[in-house]
Amino acid sequence: MFSGFMMNTWIVASIVALVAGVVGFFTVLRGSAFVAHAVPQGAFAGAAAASLLGMNTLLGLGVFALAAGLGIGVLGRSGRHDVVTALALVVMLGLGALFLSRSVEYAPEIYSLLFGEVLGVSRSQVAPTSVLALVCIAGVLLVYRPLMTVSVVPEIAEARGLSVYRMEMLFLVLVALATSMTVPVVGALLMFSLMIGPAAAARSLTDRPLVAMTLSVVLALLTVWLAIAASYLSNWPVGFFVGALGALSYGMARGWLFLRKPLTRSGAITPGGALGT
């Protein structure tokens, strides 16, 4: 399980989990799960285009992920955000369908792009993934506070001179970056699970923002490691385990919150006991 070619898998998958945990934290905080779902799927069309033109898959993924993210941001200014996200998503997928229909060798390729081919990570993927991950994490840490302010109290942030629109665009670029590096490894459909599951579970476990982000990374790492091990042993697709573990950790965290709630409730000094429903 830890032989030569599997080492690449472990390294790349860990980097992917790190990024998914960090970006996923803000995705969940901002309630942007749909965007986090749409951008990777849109990027999938880019991979199809790249393979049709015989270019580097990573380039196709990056360009399409950026296009999807920025398109959603721009159109979202005048239209409903969820509607625009849905439309951007299906247009990208429509293009993907077109490119795939033109290409000759599609069946296994499309399957691995959608659902991940974690056991086939090559040595050449390690370097670009690491670089993209560094850029992505540095980006998140750099804008941590303004992004937090804009996500939590947008009206006040505007009054303090922070542009909500610009921060939103920046966030979408970060999601796009995270996407283009993770899609070849966990696949477009499951990149999303890796971003949402751990982050959603983490926020049920702690009240502190930075601790929640760290926990989200830890849970993402655990999810990926367990999924790879299970996939290696059973030969079942890694995506299945990522999705199942994501739902499982979320369910367990909700259960924990449910058990813990009465404690915080009685410990709270709230006159009138008026807690949010």
Partner: peptide, 26 residues
């Protein structure tokens, strides 16, 4: 101001954002 009850953020974290919420870095 709608504050999500599921958001991992304590009162002190929100107030701290008032000091330097516009600055870069963690």
């Amino acid at each position: 101001v709608v504050l999500d009850p599921d958001m991992p953020m304590r009162a002190r974290d929100l107030v701290a954002l008032g000091i330097d919420g516009h600055r870069f870095g963690i």
